[in-house]
């Protein structure tokens, strides 16, 4: 079955080939392939899916079905900095909700959006990260921030924006 070819993006093509080479060992495992794609591109670009679909002779719909099933995969580019809010029980009980709202407010995120307009921040929530004793927990660029408060959240954003990471 013919699939749309990647349009004139030789860079993308080259990076895809590298992923493919790395992937050959685990033939046909869509999840690990998507994980590899996301590692390289930061998200799952549409044309890479069609590219791999053609190379591996796996229907593009299978990729899409898997990518939309798991929370880990992103089909849109994400911000430079990723803020992850833990939505576990303890964090909920200890008031993570208002903090998330505050962060979204500061980044001027409209309802339903997760990435700020300037592409600097993406705000997401995950199921429990398992650090309940220091709830509410936020993760800013892989660094864990415990016992978060509204005030500390603003500081965290400023710190990350300045590139200090904290």
């Amino acid at each position: 079955m013919p699939q749309p070819v990647l349009k004139g993006e030789s860079m993308t093509d080259k990076r895809c080939e590298e992923v493919l080479e790395k992937h050959q060992k685990e033939k046909g495992n869509i999840i690990s392939l998507l994980q590899n794609i996301q590692e390289v591109f930061g998200y799952i670009p549409e044309d890479t899916v069609f590219w791999f679909s053609r190379e591996l002779n796996i229907p593009a719909s299978s990729f899409y079905g898997v990518a939309t099933f798991y929370a880990q995969f992103y089909l849109k580019p994400r911000g430079k900095n990723i803020i992850t809010a833990c939505c576990g029980t303890a964090c909920h009980v200890k008031g993570s909700g208002p903090i998330i709202n505050k962060i979204r407010e500061e980044l001027k995120l409209p309802e339903g959006e997760t990435t700020s307009k300037d592409g600097k921040f993406t705000v997401e929530s995950v199921a429990c990260v398992g650090a309940c004793s220091i709830a509410p927990v936020f993760i800013g660029n892989k660094k864990v921030f415990g016992k978060m408060t509204i005030e500390k959240a603003s500081e965290m954003l400023k710190g990350i924006d300045k590139g200090k990471g904290a």
Binding site: M1, P2, Q3, V49, P59, S61, S62, F63, T68
Partner: peptide, 27 residues
């Protein structure tokens, strides 16, 4: 043919083509 697959999860899952593209002879 692999034209359609279940997409999404839970209450929002539905059968669809890859990236919700229209059906054409290509897919």
């Amino acid at each position: 043919a692999g034209t359609i697959e279940l997409t999404g999860r839970g209450f929002n899952s539905m059968p669809d083509t890859a990236f919700k593209k229209p059906r054409t002879l290509e897919n």
